[in-house]
Amino acid sequence: MINKIVDSVAAACTGIADGATILMGGFGGSGQPHELIDGLIAGSARDLTIVCNNAGNGETGIAALLKTGRVRKILCSFPRQADSHVFDGLYRSGKLELELVPQGNLAERIRAAGAGIGAFFTPTGFGTELAKGKETRMINGRQYVLEYPIHADVALVKAERADRWGNLVYRKAGRNFGPVMATAAKLTIAQVFDLVTLGELDPELVVTPGIYVKRVVRVDRQSERGRKAA
């Protein structure tokens, strides 16, 4: 019997190795898998490379992970935020390597990894600093830049609801990177607020089919309300 549901965040986060590359969903706080990131912090994995759109806000979530000093490198599109002081300090002191990636290239490089694409030509970034040193090609009169996939060891994803086969549905714009990240890692871990029995999710509306997901853990919605109030 396939049952991907684990009973704690700690169990969900076991086996994340030193040196791992980890995809983390979220656009700002929306869709950010806070509980799984807390689980990663509670573990011991270090020398990590993380891939996420933003580089953390305030002192929680990704910012708290960065603060542990266990992240070596971050790939992201928009680290600068009004309250990104943890990232700002580490970056300025040279303690954190940054690969700045245009947001659509970030999403597509992750998608390419999950879809078995070797590399792709994109017009985004052509003629800019962010394409420096990259192979380019003129195709049908337009200039493109060659970009490679971002494969990961682990993906941490926040969804709304799951069943024991790992089928996921998301909530509103909290979906953002979740569905593409779920496809691109060897170990995809999803946190959800609701667990339902097989058949309860409308198969027409499943966003991430369970084949991509290895572990599912239910977290308490109350903790999210508390965080947002704070």
Binding site: G104, T124, L130
Partner: peptide, 10 residues
């Protein structure tokens, strides 16, 4: 400066 590009190039 802390860099940030987001979706501008896309």
């Amino acid at each position: 400066a802390i860099p940030a590009v987001g979706g501008a190039m896309d």
